[in-house]
Design a protein around this nucleic acid. Sequence first.
DNA 1: ACCTGATTGACACGATGTCTCAGTTACGCT
DNA 2: AGCGTAACTGAGACATCGTGTCAATCAGGT
Lengths: 147, 147
Amino acid sequence: MPLSLDALERRVAGSGHRITAPRRTLLGSMQQLGDHFTAEELAAAAPSVGRATVFRTLRLLQEIGTVCQVILDDGTLEYRLASGGHHHHVVCSACGAVDDFANADIEALLGALASLTGFTIEAHRLELYGRCARCTAPLAATETTAS
Amino acid sequence: MPLSLDALERRVAGSGHRITAPRRTLLGSMQQLGDHFTAEELAAAAPSVGRATVFRTLRLLQEIGTVCQVILDDGTLEYRLASGGHHHHVVCSACGAVDDFANADIEALLGALASLTGFTIEAHRLELYGRCARCTAPLAATETTAS
DNA sequence: ACCTGATTGACACGATGTCTCAGTTACGCT
DNA sequence: AGCGTAACTGAGACATCGTGTCAATCAGGT
């Protein structure tokens, strides 16, 4: 749990938005849901909050950089409390774990791609899919463990 | 127009699927729609084909690698006749142009990221957003691009 | 305590895609 | 050429995910 509820609330307040009971509830639920969650899971975890508010709050938190989207392998969306700053995701296709990473090499590569394509790159998405260390190991040893 | 209708049909047939009138219609419409199109545009361009079939065919063509998805900046999906093979997209946020590119450096970088994250990378998505050469030029004249 | 705009919940709506199912069709086989 | 069968199709109901509307409520500066 890298971010306290307090810190999250301060981020909301600091961005010029109000701290309300539903928002507090949602922030708390997000922490309890852990690493990553769908909008639906969040709505289910906070039944006292209206669906529209769940989506509105998710959008707000994305705008202020407190939450980020993860696009899964199959194209579905999950959300995740962001540690902050620009980063990318690695998603384990076996256990669903999501990790962040930021890599200067990628940003450098984008510069090269800019001249290659003639585009001025303004933004990008990069998502990696694979198996995390924990899920790779048992697979190599005995193929029975998984799924 | 790199791929003839014939070539497209042969790809479908070659993958063990039938050539039917709706599929032929859709392939033709895709070519006429040009570079990239939404499912809805395709459905509108081929009104004789049922909506379900449009989506089914898009899925089929994705599976056999004839069509690929482009995730736009705002998260919406477009489709595109794939030149084939693994590649990435650059999307112009001004005119909507979509370009492909494949880059060995990226694949190399993924190897480095694998050891960095401990993941075994199996797949990835990379989409770039920016302005194509044509859209960058007039902008540079009037206003200096930043960020 | 008061004011006022931000926020909310309920629900209708919209966009995008899938499922079902009875009817049709491609195409390998004879 | 004719047949049989599994693949395919269209129509429309349904599922999922998210947004718009609007009257009621609330946070937080004064």
